[in-house]
Amino acid sequence: MRAFRKRRELTTVIDRTKAIAPSDILAFVTLRNERIRLPYFLRYYRNLGIRHFLIVDNGSDDGSAAYLEAQEDVSLWSTGASYKAASFGVDWLNHLLRHYGTGHWTLTVDPDEFFVYPFCDTRPIEALTDWLDTYDIRSFPAMLLDMYPKGPIDAVPYREGQNPFEIAAWFDAGNYTIERNWYFQNLWIQGGPRARMFFSKTPEAAPSLNKIPLVKWERDFVFASSTHMLLPRGLNMVYDEWGGEKASGCLLHAKFLSPLTAKVAEEMKRREHYSGSREYAAYQETLSTEPDLWTKWSEKYINWRQLEILGLMSKGNWA
């Protein structure tokens, strides 16, 4: 309903959705000022087999819009409206998902999130969605895994087109806590470097890491809160309760990468983020001291198999 009202806030910049074939897997993205990250982002997901990108540009002024407009597989909408008032962009995406995503496998990600799933180095994303189809599985979870560099976050600048995980190559392997949300039936996962670094005094305020980005969309589906949970609630049942493991992936999160300090300063000015941007407030406080998220117990990223062995994701019964 909200999405329906908020659709008016979107202006079509370029609509290439006619080119979408019935079996295409689509990506849905909202972004603001991510120009430098876009080339690698698009390349990464094209390689996985994403056929079309449906993007909402929330008032970028760094040339993101012009760059995206020139891409053959991108449809672009723009809005100057408030990110916060649109439930942090979810209203816009829900509208696009309903309109263009229905009947497709859809991947909803941020420009700093990189989807990793079992066998992603040898099998395209279509292999995964075909497999999910044979089991009538409609949603696939991927926990957010915060990646960080060794040394101060802004020490090594990110170059356009570069794999961000060449710099932010490290992650926390085993400090995640899980609680069940009985109402929405989803799991609430917190932890990782953000919890230990910025929220060690207020762990309940640490950001949620559970996400369900890959969904075979139907008309009546809706993201309830970012991609953390969905409605109807059955879509959140992506975990096994009787001891077994369902298949799952990870979203490698390239947030802790330069230029972060500048971004945090800007976001603090805009105050458009969740819970009065308390997350960004916490960053700003700590970032001014040039923190190093890296510890000697940090794990260096190799591939999905490593994440599987560490128990951060699972192959389930896919072999």
Partner: peptide, 26 residues
């Protein structure tokens, strides 16, 4: 092995796609 992972899972692991109810942890 794949079937065993799906039905029994890895003992003592709590994660996004394995969150057993109390006393069904295996």
């Amino acid at each position: 092995k794949a079937v065993e992972r799906r039905t029994k899972g890895r003992p003592g692991l709590y994660m996004q796609s394995r969150f057993p109810r109390q006393d069904h942890e295996n």
